[in-house]
Amino acid sequence: MTDDTPTLQVENLETHFFTKDGVAKAVDGVSFSVGRGEIMGLVGESGSGKSVTGFSILGLVDPPGKVVGGKVLFQGTDLLSLDDEGLRRLRGNRIAMIFQDPMMTLNPVLRVDTQMIETVRAHDPSVSVDEARARSRDALGQVGIPSPDERLRAYPHQFSGGMRQRVAIAIALLNKPDLIIADEPTTALDVTIQGQILYEAQKLCRDTGTALIWITHDLAVIAGLADKISVMYAGRIVEQGALDEVLDHPAHPYTRGLLGSVPGHNTRGKRLYQIPGMTPSLLKLPKGCAFKDRCPHADQACEDAPEITRPVEGRALRCVHPQVDLAGVAS
Protein backbone atom coordinates (compact mmCIF):
# COMPACT_ATOMS: atom_id res chain seq x y z
CA MET A 1 0.00 0.00 0.00
CA THR A 2 1.43 3.32 -1.02
CA ASP A 3 0.69 6.60 0.64
CA ASP A 4 -1.63 7.79 -2.06
CA THR A 5 -3.90 4.71 -1.89
CA PRO A 6 -7.14 6.14 -0.53
CA THR A 7 -8.23 4.77 2.84
CA LEU A 8 -11.54 3.82 1.36
CA GLN A 9 -12.52 3.50 -2.25
CA VAL A 10 -16.08 2.56 -3.08
CA GLU A 11 -16.79 1.56 -6.68
CA ASN A 12 -20.24 1.03 -8.15
CA LEU A 13 -21.67 -0.17 -4.86
CA GLU A 14 -25.14 -1.66 -5.23
CA THR A 15 -27.33 -2.58 -2.27
CA HIS A 16 -30.83 -3.80 -3.01
CA PHE A 17 -33.73 -4.60 -0.71
CA PHE A 18 -35.74 -7.59 -1.83
CA THR A 19 -39.21 -6.80 -0.54
CA LYS A 20 -42.58 -8.37 -1.25
CA ASP A 21 -43.48 -5.47 -3.53
CA GLY A 22 -40.34 -5.64 -5.60
CA VAL A 23 -36.67 -4.80 -5.49
CA ALA A 24 -35.77 -1.44 -3.96
CA LYS A 25 -32.40 -0.25 -5.20
CA ALA A 26 -31.40 1.67 -2.07
CA VAL A 27 -27.84 2.08 -3.28
CA ASP A 28 -27.48 1.96 -7.04
CA GLY A 29 -23.96 2.30 -8.36
CA VAL A 30 -22.37 4.60 -5.80
CA SER A 31 -18.67 5.46 -6.13
CA PHE A 32 -16.45 7.69 -4.03
CA SER A 33 -13.14 7.66 -2.24
CA VAL A 34 -11.79 9.06 1.01
CA GLY A 35 -8.09 9.52 1.71
CA ARG A 36 -6.11 9.70 4.93
CA GLY A 37 -7.23 12.54 7.15
CA GLU A 38 -9.89 13.49 4.64
CA ILE A 39 -13.50 14.27 5.52
CA MET A 40 -16.24 13.50 3.04
CA GLY A 41 -19.78 14.68 3.49
CA LEU A 42 -22.46 12.34 2.17
CA VAL A 43 -25.56 14.46 1.76
CA GLY A 44 -29.13 13.67 0.84
CA GLU A 45 -32.74 13.63 1.96
CA SER A 46 -34.25 10.86 4.07
CA GLY A 47 -34.47 7.71 2.03
CA SER A 48 -31.77 8.71 -0.44
CA GLY A 49 -29.65 5.69 0.55
CA LYS A 50 -26.90 7.49 2.44
CA SER A 51 -27.22 5.46 5.65
CA VAL A 52 -27.51 2.20 3.73
CA THR A 53 -24.28 3.14 1.96
CA GLY A 54 -22.60 3.43 5.37
CA PHE A 55 -23.95 0.11 6.57
CA SER A 56 -22.99 -1.57 3.28
CA ILE A 57 -19.36 -0.62 3.80
CA LEU A 58 -19.35 -2.38 7.18
CA GLY A 59 -21.39 -5.35 5.96
CA LEU A 60 -24.17 -4.50 8.40
CA VAL A 61 -27.13 -4.37 6.03
CA ASP A 62 -30.03 -6.30 7.56
CA PRO A 63 -32.16 -8.65 5.45
CA PRO A 64 -34.04 -8.27 3.17
CA GLY A 65 -31.22 -5.91 2.11
CA LYS A 66 -28.17 -7.27 0.36
CA VAL A 67 -25.05 -5.85 -1.23
CA VAL A 68 -25.33 -7.17 -4.77
CA GLY A 69 -22.49 -5.51 -6.60
CA GLY A 70 -19.48 -3.23 -6.66
CA LYS A 71 -16.30 -3.02 -4.68
CA VAL A 72 -15.45 -1.58 -1.28
CA LEU A 73 -11.68 -1.27 -1.17
CA PHE A 74 -10.40 -0.52 2.30
CA GLN A 75 -6.65 0.09 2.21
CA GLY A 76 -6.59 -2.03 -0.91
CA THR A 77 -8.65 -4.98 0.42
CA ASP A 78 -12.12 -5.62 -0.98
CA LEU A 79 -14.40 -5.81 2.05
CA LEU A 80 -17.14 -7.49 0.04
CA SER A 81 -14.90 -10.51 -0.50
CA LEU A 82 -14.19 -10.93 3.24
CA ASP A 83 -15.99 -13.55 5.32
CA ASP A 84 -17.88 -12.70 8.52
CA GLU A 85 -14.86 -13.14 10.76
CA GLY A 86 -12.67 -11.01 8.51
CA LEU A 87 -15.25 -8.21 8.60
CA ARG A 88 -15.69 -8.55 12.34
CA ARG A 89 -11.96 -8.01 12.85
CA LEU A 90 -12.15 -4.71 10.97
CA ARG A 91 -15.37 -3.45 12.51
CA GLY A 92 -14.82 -1.32 15.59
CA ASN A 93 -11.11 -1.77 15.06
CA ARG A 94 -9.95 -0.25 11.74
CA ILE A 95 -13.40 1.02 10.72
CA ALA A 96 -15.68 2.48 13.36
CA MET A 97 -19.22 3.74 13.07
CA ILE A 98 -21.20 6.31 15.00
CA PHE A 99 -24.99 6.14 14.85
CA GLN A 100 -27.64 8.79 14.60
CA ASP A 101 -29.62 8.40 17.80
CA PRO A 102 -27.45 8.46 20.92
CA MET A 103 -30.41 7.41 23.06
CA MET A 104 -30.54 4.09 21.26
CA THR A 105 -26.94 3.15 20.51
CA LEU A 106 -25.79 2.16 23.98
CA ASN A 107 -27.18 -1.01 25.50
CA PRO A 108 -29.44 0.15 28.36
CA VAL A 109 -28.70 -2.77 30.67
CA LEU A 110 -24.90 -2.78 30.46
CA ARG A 111 -22.57 -0.37 32.22
CA VAL A 112 -20.49 1.97 30.11
CA ASP A 113 -17.24 0.31 31.15
CA THR A 114 -18.55 -3.11 30.06
CA GLN A 115 -19.48 -1.72 26.68
CA MET A 116 -16.10 -0.07 26.24
CA ILE A 117 -13.85 -2.82 27.56
CA GLU A 118 -15.51 -5.44 25.36
CA THR A 119 -14.74 -3.28 22.32
CA VAL A 120 -11.04 -3.28 23.14
CA ARG A 121 -10.86 -6.94 24.02
CA ALA A 122 -12.91 -8.12 21.03
CA HIS A 123 -9.96 -7.14 18.86
CA ASP A 124 -7.08 -7.85 21.17
CA PRO A 125 -7.84 -10.43 23.87
CA SER A 126 -4.29 -10.06 25.21
CA VAL A 127 -5.15 -6.65 26.65
CA SER A 128 -6.01 -7.07 30.33
CA VAL A 129 -9.31 -5.79 31.68
CA ASP A 130 -7.49 -3.17 33.74
CA GLU A 131 -5.55 -1.95 30.74
CA ALA A 132 -8.72 -1.84 28.63
CA ARG A 133 -10.40 0.14 31.39
CA ALA A 134 -7.53 2.61 31.44
CA ARG A 135 -7.83 3.05 27.69
CA SER A 136 -11.59 3.52 28.00
CA ARG A 137 -11.05 6.18 30.64
CA ASP A 138 -8.60 8.02 28.40
CA ALA A 139 -11.03 7.84 25.49
CA LEU A 140 -13.81 9.33 27.62
CA GLY A 141 -11.46 12.10 28.68
CA GLN A 142 -10.52 12.71 25.07
CA VAL A 143 -14.15 13.44 24.08
CA GLY A 144 -14.55 15.82 27.00
CA ILE A 145 -16.47 13.79 29.56
CA PRO A 146 -15.71 15.10 33.04
CA SER A 147 -14.55 12.68 35.79
CA PRO A 148 -14.31 9.74 33.41
CA ASP A 149 -13.37 7.28 36.19
CA GLU A 150 -16.70 7.79 37.86
CA ARG A 151 -18.68 7.89 34.61
CA LEU A 152 -17.27 4.54 33.52
CA ARG A 153 -19.26 2.83 36.25
CA ALA A 154 -22.52 4.51 35.20
CA TYR A 155 -25.32 3.14 33.06
CA PRO A 156 -26.34 4.85 29.80
CA HIS A 157 -29.58 6.21 31.27
CA GLN A 158 -27.53 8.26 33.69
CA PHE A 159 -26.11 10.30 30.80
CA SER A 160 -27.74 13.07 28.78
CA GLY A 161 -28.14 12.67 25.02
CA GLY A 162 -25.06 14.73 24.22
CA MET A 163 -22.99 12.82 26.76
CA ARG A 164 -24.19 9.50 25.36
CA GLN A 165 -23.12 10.53 21.87
CA ARG A 166 -19.73 11.42 23.30
CA VAL A 167 -19.54 7.96 24.84
CA ALA A 168 -20.45 6.45 21.46
CA ILE A 169 -17.74 8.55 19.83
CA ALA A 170 -15.26 7.51 22.52
CA ILE A 171 -16.11 3.87 21.76
CA ALA A 172 -15.51 4.54 18.06
CA LEU A 173 -12.11 6.05 18.90
CA LEU A 174 -11.01 3.29 21.31
CA ASN A 175 -9.04 1.25 18.80
CA LYS A 176 -7.75 4.27 16.85
CA PRO A 177 -9.54 3.42 13.60
CA ASP A 178 -8.36 4.46 10.15
CA LEU A 179 -11.88 5.24 9.02
CA ILE A 180 -14.94 6.49 10.89
CA ILE A 181 -18.40 6.43 9.36
CA ALA A 182 -20.61 8.90 11.20
CA ASP A 183 -24.31 8.54 10.40
CA GLU A 184 -25.93 11.89 11.28
CA PRO A 185 -24.27 11.86 14.70
CA THR A 186 -25.25 15.40 15.61
CA THR A 187 -28.82 15.45 14.32
CA ALA A 188 -30.31 14.59 17.71
CA LEU A 189 -28.13 17.06 19.62
CA ASP A 190 -28.55 20.72 20.35
CA VAL A 191 -26.55 23.22 18.39
CA THR A 192 -23.82 24.07 20.92
CA ILE A 193 -22.96 20.41 21.51
CA GLN A 194 -23.12 19.86 17.76
CA GLY A 195 -20.51 22.57 17.28
CA GLN A 196 -18.16 21.05 19.84
CA ILE A 197 -18.45 17.60 18.35
CA LEU A 198 -17.83 18.89 14.82
CA TYR A 199 -14.76 20.74 16.01
CA GLU A 200 -13.41 17.67 17.77
CA ALA A 201 -14.10 15.40 14.80
CA GLN A 202 -12.25 17.71 12.47
CA LYS A 203 -9.31 18.04 14.86
CA LEU A 204 -9.10 14.26 15.22
CA CYS A 205 -8.89 13.71 11.46
CA ARG A 206 -6.23 16.35 11.00
CA ASP A 207 -4.17 15.08 13.93
CA THR A 208 -4.35 11.33 13.45
CA GLY A 209 -4.98 10.93 9.73
CA THR A 210 -8.28 9.19 10.30
CA ALA A 211 -10.57 9.33 7.30
CA LEU A 212 -14.14 10.37 8.03
CA ILE A 213 -17.40 9.92 6.18
CA TRP A 214 -20.01 12.25 7.62
CA ILE A 215 -23.52 11.29 6.59
CA THR A 216 -26.06 14.08 6.99
CA HIS A 217 -28.98 15.89 5.45
CA ASP A 218 -27.75 19.17 6.87
CA LEU A 219 -25.63 21.15 4.41
CA ALA A 220 -24.78 23.71 7.07
CA VAL A 221 -22.98 21.03 9.07
CA ILE A 222 -21.02 19.84 6.05
CA ALA A 223 -20.06 23.36 5.01
CA GLY A 224 -17.94 23.87 8.10
CA LEU A 225 -16.49 20.40 8.24
CA ALA A 226 -15.85 18.46 5.05
CA ASP A 227 -13.15 18.52 2.38
CA LYS A 228 -15.39 17.06 -0.26
CA ILE A 229 -18.99 16.29 -0.73
CA SER A 230 -21.15 13.67 -2.43
CA VAL A 231 -24.82 14.43 -2.96
CA MET A 232 -27.11 11.42 -3.14
CA TYR A 233 -30.59 11.19 -4.58
CA ALA A 234 -32.71 8.02 -4.81
CA GLY A 235 -29.76 5.70 -4.31
CA ARG A 236 -27.41 7.42 -6.73
CA ILE A 237 -24.74 10.05 -6.50
CA VAL A 238 -25.92 13.07 -8.47
CA GLU A 239 -23.07 15.44 -7.79
CA GLN A 240 -19.63 15.10 -6.30
CA GLY A 241 -16.59 17.29 -5.85
CA ALA A 242 -14.47 19.41 -3.55
CA LEU A 243 -16.60 21.14 -0.93
CA ASP A 244 -16.03 24.74 -2.01
CA GLU A 245 -16.46 23.95 -5.69
CA VAL A 246 -19.80 22.23 -5.19
CA LEU A 247 -21.16 24.80 -2.75
CA ASP A 248 -20.02 27.76 -4.85
CA HIS A 249 -20.96 26.34 -8.25
CA PRO A 250 -23.66 23.70 -7.80
CA ALA A 251 -24.43 22.21 -11.20
CA HIS A 252 -27.17 19.70 -10.45
CA PRO A 253 -30.66 21.15 -10.00
CA TYR A 254 -31.10 19.01 -6.88
CA THR A 255 -27.94 20.38 -5.22
CA ARG A 256 -29.09 23.88 -6.11
CA GLY A 257 -32.45 23.11 -4.55
CA LEU A 258 -30.84 21.87 -1.35
CA LEU A 259 -28.61 24.93 -1.14
CA GLY A 260 -31.49 27.24 -1.91
CA SER A 261 -33.46 25.86 1.01
CA VAL A 262 -30.74 26.66 3.57
CA PRO A 263 -31.40 29.95 5.37
CA GLY A 264 -28.56 32.43 4.95
CA HIS A 265 -27.72 36.09 5.63
CA ASN A 266 -29.30 37.47 2.49
CA THR A 267 -32.47 35.37 2.59
CA ARG A 268 -33.93 37.38 5.44
CA GLY A 269 -37.56 38.27 4.85
CA LYS A 270 -37.73 36.11 1.74
CA ARG A 271 -39.42 32.76 1.42
CA LEU A 272 -36.90 29.90 1.40
CA TYR A 273 -36.80 27.82 -1.72
CA GLN A 274 -38.64 24.55 -1.48
CA ILE A 275 -38.01 21.61 -3.79
CA PRO A 276 -41.48 20.66 -5.06
CA GLY A 277 -42.81 17.16 -4.43
CA MET A 278 -41.15 14.56 -2.25
CA THR A 279 -38.58 11.81 -2.49
CA PRO A 280 -39.99 9.14 -4.81
CA SER A 281 -40.52 5.63 -3.49
CA LEU A 282 -37.57 3.44 -4.41
CA LEU A 283 -40.05 0.86 -5.64
CA LYS A 284 -41.65 3.30 -8.08
CA LEU A 285 -38.81 5.38 -9.45
CA PRO A 286 -39.73 7.36 -12.55
CA LYS A 287 -38.12 6.20 -15.79
CA GLY A 288 -35.02 8.12 -16.78
CA CYS A 289 -33.69 10.70 -14.32
CA ALA A 290 -35.11 9.99 -10.87
CA PHE A 291 -35.31 13.71 -10.13
CA LYS A 292 -37.09 14.79 -13.31
CA ASP A 293 -40.59 15.01 -11.78
CA ARG A 294 -39.37 17.58 -9.27
CA CYS A 295 -36.93 19.36 -11.52
CA PRO A 296 -37.78 22.77 -13.05
CA HIS A 297 -35.43 22.12 -16.00
CA ALA A 298 -36.66 18.66 -16.98
CA ASP A 299 -37.42 18.03 -20.63
CA GLN A 300 -37.43 15.28 -23.22
CA ALA A 301 -33.72 14.58 -22.72
CA CYS A 302 -34.37 13.52 -19.11
CA GLU A 303 -36.43 10.51 -20.20
CA ASP A 304 -33.19 8.57 -20.53
CA ALA A 305 -31.34 7.93 -17.30
CA PRO A 306 -28.35 10.31 -17.29
CA GLU A 307 -24.88 8.82 -16.87
CA ILE A 308 -22.19 10.15 -14.58
CA THR A 309 -20.09 12.74 -16.39
CA ARG A 310 -16.83 14.29 -15.27
CA PRO A 311 -16.91 17.80 -16.74
CA VAL A 312 -13.72 18.82 -14.92
CA GLU A 313 -11.09 17.10 -12.83
CA GLY A 314 -12.47 16.10 -9.43
CA ARG A 315 -16.12 16.79 -10.25
CA ALA A 316 -18.78 14.24 -11.06
CA LEU A 317 -22.28 15.01 -12.20
CA ARG A 318 -25.34 13.05 -13.23
CA CYS A 319 -27.41 15.52 -15.20
CA VAL A 320 -27.94 16.46 -18.83
CA HIS A 321 -28.74 20.06 -17.93
CA PRO A 322 -25.86 21.29 -15.75
CA GLN A 323 -26.79 24.67 -14.33
CA VAL A 324 -23.24 26.00 -14.43
CA ASP A 325 -20.65 25.84 -17.16
CA LEU A 326 -18.17 23.94 -15.05
CA ALA A 327 -15.45 23.97 -17.65
CA GLY A 328 -15.88 27.73 -17.93
CA VAL A 329 -15.72 28.21 -14.17
CA ALA A 330 -12.57 26.12 -13.96
CA SER A 331 -10.75 28.14 -16.62
Partner: peptide, 16 residues
Protein backbone atom coordinates in the same frame (compact mmCIF):
# COMPACT_ATOMS: atom_id res chain seq x y z
CA UNK B 1 -32.59 -2.10 18.14
CA UNK B 2 -29.74 0.23 17.33
CA UNK B 3 -27.68 -0.99 20.24
CA UNK B 4 -27.52 -4.48 18.75
CA UNK B 5 -26.34 -3.06 15.44
CA UNK B 6 -23.89 -0.85 17.29
CA UNK B 7 -22.58 -3.87 19.20
CA UNK B 8 -21.97 -5.59 15.87
CA UNK B 9 -20.38 -2.42 14.50
CA UNK B 10 -17.97 -2.57 17.43
CA UNK B 11 -16.73 -5.89 16.05
CA UNK B 12 -18.09 -8.09 18.82
CA UNK B 13 -18.52 -11.75 18.00
CA UNK B 14 -22.03 -12.96 17.24
CA UNK B 15 -21.81 -15.09 20.34
CA UNK B 16 -21.25 -12.11 22.59
Amino acid sequence: QDYIKFARAKGLSNRR
